[in-house]
Computed example of a mutant assay.
Amino acid sequence: MRTIQLLAVLFLLASCKGKWEKTQPSVGKITESVYASGIIKARRQYQVFSRVNGLIVSIPVTEGDTVRKGAPIIIIRNETAKLNTENAAIAADYNSVKANADKLNELRVNIDLARIKLNNDSLTLSRQRRLWEQRIGSQQQLEQAELAYKNSVTAYDVAIFKYNDLQKQLNFAAKQSGKNLEISHTQNDDYIVRSDIDGKVYSIAPKNGEMVTTQSPIAVIGDAGNYYLELQADEYDIARIRLGQKVYVTLDSYRGKVFEAVVEKIYPMMNEKSRSFTVDAHFTTAPPVVYPNLTLEANIEIQTKEHALTIPRNYLLGEDEVMLENKERKKVVTGVKDYQQVEIVSGLTANDVIIKPAP
């Protein structure tokens, strides 16, 4: 019985020994990169919102159309706004200085009459004073001439004041009415949703006859044929990402193919929910056909070594040890890592044989 057990143990050891996988360090190129996910976006891509709530009466464009800046995208019913504009136009016309020219002319005539009376009363007073100096007439006549002159001066001043005051009121009313008309025109134009750029209509959410609100986007517009990559990089990797670094991109739409891009912008604010940073990149070798919001996976190249001594990553024990062929554990210093290989800076040579740790 004891002999059978010994043979079983020897057989087990022999079987385990045969399962050890071996390899030797090799010299080659290794590239360290960090992973990022993201989507493709059109340049200047933005969501279109309506400034007013209302019912859609017309959609002059369809998805895929190219539009000029200021072109109508969606037209909303605006009967009330039109009536308000018409009322504002009526008020502006009624309060214009030109429409009230008769009132000003009337006061201007009153000023001329008051001036004539003032001149006459001034002459009468001067004559009455000369007569009184010659003791001709009476004191009462002189006082009456002086009172009439003062009244004429007051009447003349009042006539000028009324004219200036009316002119000021008319100018104010005309400007106010004009501004109200401008506001009405602006509000009326809010019922036409226009493109802010020369670009392409990528999507339109509502349909003709549906209601739109100011809270929900109604369309997406961006540059036609000019795209970039919006990547999300983990906060632990962002410190190693720099402008100009190469990006290797894979898309589900082009399985098995890798496209190249370059980092062009790093946003400094971290998204607290996802604990990630936004990084923009542009294609240097782009797919033949691209659409906004296509998902992608990217590897941002951090550094590359052409002649590095490397071993497979799954041969490492922990972070800094390997197992030699004689089962001895050996300390190593690692350098650049990718998803499959790791650089050995020191601790091994190309002649060493190492074995893969048992799972």
Rank of each mutant, 00 (worst) to 15 (best):
I241F: 02
R135C: 00
D234M: 03
I74R: 00
A173F: 02
P206K: 11
N299T: 06
I111C: 11
A89W: 01
K82S: 02
N119W: 01
F49N: 10
A358Y: 05
T3L: 15
L12P: 07
V109C: 05
P72G: 06
I204C: 08
F283C: 07
K356Q: 15
L229C: 12
V258F: 06
Y248I: 11
N87C: 02
P217C: 04
N314Y: 06
F259G: 10
I30Q: 00
M323N: 01
T62K: 15
L7P: 02
D338Y: 03
L13R: 03
E272L: 12
P359F: 12
K69M: 09
L118Q: 09
P359G: 12
L309H: 09
P206S: 09
N119G: 03
N78K: 15
T213H: 05
N299M: 14
A101K: 10
V9R: 14
Y291D: 04
Q245H: 09
E79D: 15
V158P: 00
F277S: 09
A145L: 12
S126M: 08
S122Y: 05
A145E: 07
N164M: 03
I116M: 10
G28K: 13
W20E: 12
Y191V: 09
E79H: 08
I302K: 09
H282F: 02
P25I: 13
V27A: 05
P357I: 01
V342Y: 00
I75G: 02
A145H: 09
E32M: 10
E210Q: 14
L10M: 13
F172M: 09
D93Q: 14
P292K: 03
L317F: 06
N314A: 07
E230N: 12
L142D: 07
S126I: 08
K175F: 00
E143W: 06
K356I: 02
Y267D: 15
K273A: 14
L104H: 02
S276P: 08
T23H: 04
T186G: 05
D352K: 08
A88L: 03
D223R: 11
S138F: 03
L251E: 04
L317K: 14
A92G: 03
F259K: 06
I111R: 11
A205F: 06
I221W: 01
G28V: 04
D280C: 05
V342F: 02
I302Y: 01
I75C: 06
G38Y: 02
K150M: 07
E272K: 14
E32P: 00
N84C: 02
T66A: 09
E325T: 04
Y35S: 08
D196M: 13
V61P: 05
V220E: 11
P217H: 12
T304N: 08
K19E: 12
S15R: 07
I73Q: 05
T295V: 08
K265W: 01
L324M: 14
A350D: 03
D237V: 07
